[in-house]
Design a protein around this nucleic acid. Structure first.
Length: 645
RNA sequence: GCCAGAAUAGCUCAGUUGGUAGAGCAACUGAUUCGUAAUCAGUAGGUCCGGGGUUCAACUCCCCGUUCUGGCUCCA
């Protein structure tokens, strides 16, 4: 097939993929245009494209991101058409494609039920069968306004007013027309695989104060096979859900009697957590932090001074004794400030770096709680760096390296986001300038890719956030670095400069894992419960074949314990297969089998959680295997393995 | 907090148009002494989330709470 884009002839084989098109020198945008052009003549402003008839759509671009986007967006239109047909009084609002699917928000008198979804899906299929053509026309703002006014679609009119464009495109297929930027597939018959997934409430334009709409989520793919794979992936992801694994591996639980959003850590889970916390303390000490700790509750006056009492009170717990004389801390900074003020600091003393695994309580709205990811009692791996303004950049740069080292150790990919000054903010222009520039410089120097979130900083300073992804692609903010201008001011903390005068230091709040709870939640899903050997609460389990090996089992256990290995023995009167299965389900990394043969030779037979079994080895070798496995990720990351069980 | 759905044994779940509950696994007891993902038999275990209401009768229907799940908003 030959296409002409902006006067550049391009030769593409039939069924060319997006990647091939890119190689031929087409930009993604151009290719998208070309593909759409090939699918139908009137879909875009195609003055620069010579369209050719298109017979099939999917081989050309369905494997590309753009292709899926078009399919999904078109499916959203298809759904809106079906909803309007079945529920004529429903008003349409917006319906974009999203990661792995699409949604459409409707204003309707009652919520949609699962049965409604089935009916809608059926209606959509019939529209697919009718193979209706998508067409597009460009209109003026007035024409667009009138068009949707006649249809009674007031949300669309509001959009037109807000967008303020010179002209608008309206896409039509069958009887359904929608204000839309496009592009779309040429005909509804090209939508080959979709499924409606769920209904949820969503506020118009994402604002809590606006009317709540009915959102229908769905997913769409290039072919039924891809759809099936996607649904299968969702099923698989459910198995990695940390809440499920928490029960299965007996790590933690939640209990209504205790309170919502408050985890109970079982022996195994707490052991894992303790190892992680121990690791963190040592890593922080290594990098020049001081360990500190303040109390869980602090006098109300202090919260008034910091501004939390005025701005954050509804999220805080208070003691009832002495009429709210004490506030239960929702963050750790106040005690750290007071600790800083214990003596006169010189510029030579800066930066001060205070680290605390601080337990905080925040009364989060009930609807947001989610396993370990969002709780009301949690532990932050929190630190406050109090430094001179000229030290910000260096400190940030060190932090970037620190975070990166640690995330990599766990095998996480992460997104970095820089958030700048919001509309409502305090602090001088100069402060913001210096702080934001320091963050930007450090980010640039670190070589990490990052996105900028304009105006999304805290009111007291700019920040950098680090996001880790859970098993089903939800992204969770874990690490954060925030510059703060207010607290040093409010608490009047100072240092004595070279000039002998008092100066105001800058304060950096930062948490690396974010919260221990959330991090363990994300990590659990990341590794599906098969924790790295250095973290696994049980590193090795010894199992005997019959009672006859009891004595040797004890000997082996004592030996491995002596090497600092977390080992337990399963000497129940059960078949070996049963014990193996149980250990495998519990994701114990090393299974050491002992039968008569092993007793005789003084060896153990090693089976591993995944990969090839080492088989028969001496005790010395077995211990080495386990210790090496524990050390491996540290060595790969150029770090030292700094602790034992 | 808002919208929707859910809550039955330690865990995972059945429970037909209203007639006071069942399975598998786990636990306990006994038999079995066995070689890499589930040995057999028996026993015990429930205020069916809580509180009201309708009914001769409620796990089941209605109302109000609580908690959980999926979203929205917010956030580590």
């Amino acid at each position: 097939m030959q296409i002409d884009v902006s006067g550049n002839p391009v030769e593409l084989a039939d069924g060319a993929t997006c990647a091939e098109a890119l190689q031929e020198g087409l930009s993604k945008k151009q290719f998208k245009k070309v593909v759409v052009a090939k699918c139908g003549e009137t879909l875009l402003d195609l003055s620069t494209v010579v369209p050719t008839p298109c017979t099939t759509l999917e081989p050309v671009f369905a494997d590309s991101e753009e292709g899926l986007e078009i399919i999904r967006h078109s499916t959203a239109h298809l759904m809106a058409e079906a909803v309007k047909k079945l529920f004529p009084t429903a008003k349409v609002t917006i319906g974009p494609s999203i990661k792995e699917g699409f949604y459409y928000d409707f204003d309707y008198e009652r919520p949609f039920t699962p049965e409604d979804l089935e009916a809608i899906e059926k209606e959509m299929l019939s529209s697919v069968g009718a193979n209706k053509e998508f067409s597009c026309k460009t209109v003026t703002p007035d024409e667009a306004r009138k068009f949707f006014a006649d249809l009674g679609e007031d949300y669309k009119q509001e959009l037109i007013d807000d967008l303020g464009a010179d002209e608008y495109s309206i896409y039509t297929h069958g009887d359904f027309a929608d204000l839309c930027r496009g592009p779309h597939v040429a005909r509804t018959g090209m939508i080959k695989a979709f499924k409606l997934l769920s209904v949820a409430g969503a506020y118009w334009r994402g604002n809590e104060k606006n009317k709540q709409l009915q959102r229908i989520y769905g997913t769409a793919w290039q072919d039924p096979k891809a759809l099936k794979q996607h649904l299968h992936r969702l099923e698989e992801a459910k198995k990695r859900d940390h809440r499920k694994l928490g029960t299965q591996l007996d790590l933690f639980s939640f209990n209504d009697e205790v309170g919502p959003g408050m985890a109970l850590w079982h022996p195994r889970g707490m052991l894992l957590r303790a190892i992680l916390e121990d690791f963190e303390r040592k890593e922080h000490l290594k990098r020049g932090y001081d360990l500190v700790q303040g109390p869980l509750i602090l006098k109300r006056e202090l919260w008034e001074k910091s501004g939390h009492y005025d701005n954050y009170r509804e999220n805080m717990y208070f003691t009832e004794i002495d009429e709210q004389a004490y506030g239960i801390k929702p963050m750790n900074c106040l005690a750290h400030m007071v600790i800083y003020k214990r003596k006169i600091m010189s510029y030579r003393d800066l930066p001060q770096r205070y680290f605390e695994l601080g337990v905080v309580h925040r009364h989060e709205k009930s609807g947001v709680l989610h396993g370990l990811m969002r709780v009301r009692t949690f532990t932050q791996d929190d630190a406050h760096l109090i430094c001179r303004p000229d030290q910000i950049e260096k400190e940030i740069l060190d932090l970037m390296q620190f975070y990166s080292d640690i995330y990599s150790l766990f095998g996480f990919d992460f997104d970095v986001e820089l958030s700048t000054r919001p509309e409502k903010s305090i602090g001088s222009d100069e402060d913001w300038e210096v702080a934001t520039e320091s963050l930007r410089q450090a980010l640039d120097k670190s070589g990490m890719g990052y996105t900028i979130n304009e105006g999304d900083g805290a009111f007291y300073g700019p920040k950098i956030d680090f996001h880790l992804t859970d098993s089903i692609g939800r992204s969770w903010q874990c690490g954060t670095i925030q510059v703060d201008f207010t607290l040093p001011e409010r608490f009047d903390i100072v240092y004595v400069g070279e000039d002998g005068n008092r100066h105001r230091p800058v304060m950096i709040h930062r948490a690396m894992l974010g919260s221990i709870e959330r991090f363990i939640g994300v990590l659990t899903e990341h590794c599906a419960g098969a924790y790295p050997v250095w973290l696994a609460p049980v590193q090795a389990r010894i199992m005997n074949v019959t009672d006859a090996q009891g004595e040797f089992v004890e000997k082996v256990q004592a030996f491995l314990k002596g090497k600092g290995i977390r080992v337990e023995a399963d000497v129940r009167n059960e078949k070996l297969g049963y014990k193996i299965r149980e250990a495998q389900v519990e994701k114990v990394p090393f299974m050491l089998v002992i039968g008569d043969k092993e007793v005789e030779s003084g060896c153990v037979n090693v089976r591993v959680r995944e990969g090839e079994d080492p088989g028969m080895v001496t005790l010395e070798e077995a211990a080495q295997l386990i210790l090496d496995a524990a050390r491996a990720p540290f060595e790969a990351g150029g770090m030292s393995y700094s602790f034992s069980g």
